[in-house]
């Protein structure tokens, strides 16, 4: 059984919960008192991750850290269809790697803005917001052209990949960091498609389709 070192309001932990829910993987969540306890920075937690970050997973003794690396592992180990991490198709695999790196960018901009606004992190807020808008513009254009080809996801092909899961929380919670998605219609339509993936779960701040009082 997988143990997830988890904080409910962390986008990077949510990426793992979302992936495991979609894949139907059972796990145990160990809550880390991220705020205000800063438990992930404690000497005790350094034995679990010397970098002092969450999430970390422990899969029957196999320890892995870093959100996007964990997604690679979960899909490789627990998705027998081999669609979520498309190792059999060199082009799609390359695209997946490209968008996973892109997701490092959305995490370091859009999700940093959220940490600044919600928890008072000391980031250059104008710089991280501008960086997020630059990436959202690229992603919006990319998804618009994908839609013209009848495709729904960031990577080519008919099936979503771990790249969609890596990107979704940074995008879906961007407004908490003061980053409006009003100017990115294709990006908004993509967030709706992600929310329709069977097994989809929310985190606080992410509203499921059909659950909103406005739907």
């Amino acid at each position: 059984m997988i143990t997830l070192y988890d904080y409910e309001l962390s986008v990077n932990c949510y990426k793992q919960r979302l992936m495991m829910a979609i894949l139907g993987v059972e796990y145990t969540s160990v809550p880390v008192d991220f705020y205000p306890g800063w438990e992930h920075k404690s000497a005790e937690f350094a034995k679990i991750n010397p970098l002092g970050h969450i999430p970390v997973i422990d899969d029957d003794g196999f320890m892995l850290r870093d959100a996007h690396a964990i997604l690679v592992y979960l899909a490789s180990r627990y998705d027998p269809s081999r669609l979520w991490y498309p190792v059999d198709d060199p082009c799609r695999l390359g695209e997946t790697a490209q968008w996973m790196l892109f997701a490092e960018g959305t995490t370091n901009t859009a999700s940093s803005a959220r940490l600044h606004d919600n928890l008072g992190y000391d980031f250059d807020i104008d710089a991280v917001r501008a960086g997020a808008h630059k990436l959202f513009r690229v992603m919006d254009e990319h998804l618009w052209f994908r839609e013209r080809e009848g495709l729904d996801w960031v990577v080519s092909g008919a099936h979503p990949t771990i790249a969609d899961i890596a990107l979704f929380p940074d995008v879906a919670l961007s407004e908490e960091g003061g980053i409006s998605r009003l100017d990115y219609p294709a990006l908004r339509r993509w967030t709706d498609r992600v929310r329709r993936i069977p097994g989809f779960v929310t985190m606080p701040g992410v509203i499921a389709l059909g659950e909103s009082p406005w739907d």
Partner: peptide, 17 residues
């Protein structure tokens, strides 16, 4: 304290949007 905080922070974050 951590368990109680977790519960209450969830509630607060659900109100946010």
């Amino acid at each position: 304290d951590a368990t109680i905080r977790r519960f209450q922070q969830t509630i607060l974050a659900q109100d946010m949007p």
